[in-house]
Amino acid sequence: MTLDIAFAGIVNGLMSGGIYVLVAVGLTLIYGVLHIINFAHGSMLMLAMYGVYYLFKPPLGVDPYVALPILVAGSFAFGYVLYRGLIGRFSHGKDENILLITLGLSIIADNAALFFFTGDTQTIDVAWAGRFVEVGPALIPMPKLVSFVASLALCAALGLFMAFSDTGKAIRAVAKERQGARLVGIDVENIFAISYGIGIACLGAAACLLMPFFYVSPSSGHAFVLVAFTIVVLGGMGSFAGALVGGLLIGIVESLGGLQFGEQLGQIGIPLVFILILLFRPVGLFGSR
């Protein structure tokens, strides 16, 4: 691997990493506040990607970037209702149980997609998708660059929201000290549902940014779920900064792994990192227990 190729690989990995950050931030938020592992995270991203696809297709013809607010609002509502109606009733038992519930949800989502949308791989063609930006020896496809910048901007916006808004403060209070939050009059169940909704809303945004350069099929969710978990354990469960650094790192690991070991064997990097982190540093880079 020459230096130029490695550089291009790193730049490309960073670009993919941006999207991963957005996906993982949702997962880590849900974990940090609710202490549940949302195994359906990938499947919900897949559903959101189909949402973008069908909005783009005639007769609607909505550009994926224009669709972003729609998807974010829709995903938030979906997550909120799902938590209130189903997940919230389970979230205080054994942690394997909630994992099994969300596994059940992902089975339902994946197969509902297979049933309604068929197993075909779907892509959308936006006019400007073929444009490239030159960064040194690396060529970056325009939609990837947009997704990277927008992902990080959205994460920053979420960070500001968490830091300064009343709701954000309440979420952090609940995450730190449930009982105490309840005692000072915070509606904890509502905060749980809002947090879950925000976690899913991140997926809605990620779907809009992904679709211009990626594809969707009913099994897309499965492809993303382990990536998202790996980032979250790498960064430390529940840590925002961890998700940010973890996402970018995993993007680079994936890209360089693919370059060095080829398309097939290169995929091994992600589950391997996941295993190694859990075995040797289960608190992750930024987590503490």
């Binding site: 942690d95 394997e96 909630i98 097939q264 064997l265 992600i270 589950p271």
Partner: peptide, 21 residues
């Protein structure tokens, strides 16, 4: 608990990718 469940999933993925390559 969940961590054990997820690490077994990751091991299965590692084996699948190895078998594939």
């Amino acid at each position: 608990g969940s961590y054990f469940a997820l690490i077994t999933l990751a091991f299965a993925e590692v084996f699948r990718i190895l078998a594939n390559s």
